[in-house]
Amino acid sequence: MKPHQKNRSRSYYRHQRRRTIQRKAKIAEHNGWYVPSKGYFAKGKVHCSCWMCSQKTNKDGFPHSQIIQLERLKSQLSDYFSEEE
């Protein structure tokens, strides 16, 4: 007997993988994306998270942490350009 037994069978994992791939393929088909193979959807996200596509960012603005980060970058740039003069 093996020291560690698995709770789930291979068929369970196959079923879950097939289910998630079908869901993601349906989303891609709805958006008209070209997909070379369906196995591409086995892992990862199916949506674009850029600032232009993200509805949450367009509606609510950037999160607090990103606002602070942008302010730091702006201050670094202003310091850099002021030192050159």
Rank of each mutant, 00 (worst) to 15 (best):
M1Y: 14
M1V: 12
P3F: 15
P3A: 14
K6A: 12
K6H: 13
N7L: 15
N7E: 14
N7Q: 15
N7W: 15
R8M: 11
S9K: 15
R10M: 05
R10S: 06
S11V: 07
R14P: 00
R14A: 11
Q16H: 13
R17W: 02
R18H: 07
R18N: 13
R18Y: 03
R18L: 03
R19K: 15
R19S: 07
R19Y: 13
R19A: 05
T20K: 12
I21E: 05
I21L: 03
I21K: 09
Q22V: 01
Q22G: 02
R23E: 11
R23M: 06
R23T: 06
R23Y: 05
A25K: 06
K26E: 13
I27S: 01
A28K: 07
E29W: 02
H30R: 15
Y34K: 12
V35M: 08
V35F: 02
V35Y: 03
V35N: 04
P36Q: 10
S37T: 06
S37P: 00
K38V: 03
K38T: 04
K38L: 04
G39H: 10
Y40C: 02
Y40I: 07
F41C: 01
G44H: 09
K45F: 03
V46S: 05
H47D: 05
C48P: 00
S49D: 08
S49V: 05
C50A: 05
M52L: 06
M52D: 11
C53M: 03
C53N: 05
C53W: 07
K56I: 04
D60G: 00
D60R: 08
D60S: 07
F62N: 04
F62T: 02
P63D: 04
H64Q: 07
S65W: 12
Q66I: 07
Q66G: 00
Q66K: 11
Q66E: 10
I68E: 08
I68G: 00
Q69A: 11
L70W: 10
L70A: 09
L70H: 10
R72Q: 12
R72N: 10
K74A: 09
K74G: 01
K74Q: 10
S75C: 04
S75R: 15
Q76M: 12
Q76H: 12
Q76L: 11
Q76C: 02
S78M: 09
S78F: 10
S78V: 07
S78N: 12
S78K: 14
S78I: 13
D79L: 07
Y80P: 00
Y80S: 07
Y80F: 14
F81A: 03
F81N: 11
E83W: 12
E84Y: 13
E84Q: 15
E85M: 09
